[in-house]
């Protein structure tokens, strides 16, 4: 790999929850390992680049979410990226887009169908701290984040959640997010990679094929994680 390309998909539409943070964190953590990396922000009236290594999709309001789905379906770039086994990390509204359908402004909208899941409206809005145990095969410490969404997400048979919920709602109060090959979806803001640097490194490992990334100074991220997990009664 010459240079790791991190593509932020449609920041003009999907950037409500500090989503820039996930891009900044991946970029910084790559450079800190001596991995050449660049970031590309792609507006919704631009074509998605074909050869990104990591695609990031953030959270957003109902209207922009529906527009983003239409434009991504028309663009086709994310489908090609997924077929090439690029890494995709999607948060909240962006996560719902990955499935076959979602609800925005009271209407059912077509999603990208990249992962076998669909989302509908829950009985109440899920707002608050979110924590869970990440799928053990991934070998990561607990997930911590903040969620704020009205949707509930239902995974198809054979599709695995990213984590098992211990605090909050996530997909359905049991599972949270999705893990499908090199695609991850989550309801966690924070942003998610600020609170879960091990998750950021997982994406970097997938994208670079480097199994062993040099450890970084985790003094402040460690203290942040300890504080947020303690706030929900976990250590």
């Amino acid at each position: 790999m010459s240079e790791l390309t991190i593509v932020w998909v449609y920041p003009d539409l999907l950037s409500t929850y500090g989503d820039r943070g996930n891009m900044l964190i991946l970029h910084r953590r790559a450079l800190a390992r001596g991995i050449p990396a660049r970031t590309v922000e792609v507006r919704s009236d631009e074509k998605l680049p074909a050869h990104g290594d990591i695609y990031l999709i953030g959270g957003g309001e109902d209207g922009p979410q529906a527009s983003a789905a239409e434009r991504l379906i028309a663009d086709g770039g994310l489908h090609r990226a997924a077929a090439d086994r690029a890494v995709i990390f999607a948060v909240c509204a962006g996560y719902q887009l990955l499935g076959s359908s979602f609800f925005a402004k009271g209407e059912k909208c077509a999603g990208l169908g990249l992962v076998d899941l669909h989302s509908d409206r829950g009985p109440s809005r899920a707002v608050g701290e979110l924590a869970g145990d990440i799928a053990p095969e991934l070998g990561l410490p607990p997930l911590t984040g903040f969620e704020n969404h009205g949707g509930r997400t239902h995974l198809g048979a054979g599709v695995r959640p990213l984590a098992t919920v211990t605090t909050g709602v996530g997909n359905d109060s049991v599972g949270e997010g999705v893990w499908a090959g090199t695609i991850l979806g989550t309801y966690a803001h924070g942003p998610a990679l600020a609170r879960n640097p091990a998750l950021a490194d997982l994406l970097l490992r997938w994208a670079t094929g480097e199994e062993n990334l040099a450890p970084l100074d985790e003094t402040w991220t460690g203290r942040l994680r300890a504080e947020r997990l303690a706030a929900v009664g976990r250590s």
Binding site: G18, G21, N148, W220
Partner: peptide, 30 residues
């Protein structure tokens, strides 16, 4: 939700002595 911290570019503070405090000082630190 403290995610908005990432919508703010704090680089204008470079070169000043910066101190952080408050309930969510760790979010700010990261």
């Amino acid at each position: 939700d403290t995610s908005w911290l990432y919508d703010v570019d704090f680089s204008p503070l470079r070169g000043r002595q910066v101190l952080v405090t408050g309930d969510r000082a760790m979010d700010l630190a990261v």
